[in-house]
Amino acid sequence: MYKGEAYITGACVIRNNRVDRDGVLLLETPQEQELTDFLRAGYDQFSGQYPKFHKMDPLSKLGWLAAEVLLKDAPLNNYPPESVGLILANKSASLDTDLRYFETVKDIASPALFVYTLANIVMGEISIRHGFKGENAFFTTDAFDPGFIAGYINQLFLENAVSACLCGWVEVMGPVYEVIMYKVELTSEKGLVFNADNLQKAGSI
């Protein structure tokens, strides 16, 4: 029975050409480097050996990379795949890719772009990579709202819908991007207690 005791066992922040995990800088590239090249640098440093990464849109690359950073050294292997959830949010949904796709429609519509014209595809990419099969939801809000995320996930814990999850904010629109992703677990007692204040604290770099 869930008694409000879940823990934030990891936090990854990607913004301003930096990748931080749990407050520790893991990668930084020159500020003038474009997002595409920054994401490639992140892939080379944290993953590799996953060619499908190069086909993803920037939103999926950002979310996938944050999940890679969070799970690389501490995967959620101890949980059944059906009990690992994904709860993400952002401001622009998939508009960044929608606009690119719209440009191709004027000539020949790109199938490779079309498949990313939904924001929740990023969760599919993360699930395929890590084998997650649990509850998932993608919300669109004006700004990152730790209170909303914490409330929603607490309800999932109360209903025994998940035992662990990745959650947070994955936003991109043109050159502007920001990821604040957390790993939250029921059965761990390491890390900060899972609540809105601590989400804010863990995501502040």
């Binding site: 060619p51 086909k55 199938p111 490779a112």
Partner: peptide, 17 residues
């Protein structure tokens, strides 16, 4: 080479373009 169904659609586009 490990291509998938979306790649097949892209090759169709390639042939057309």
């Amino acid at each position: 080479l490990g291509l998938d169904s979306i790649d097949a659609l892209e090759i169709i586009v390639l042939l057309q373009q």
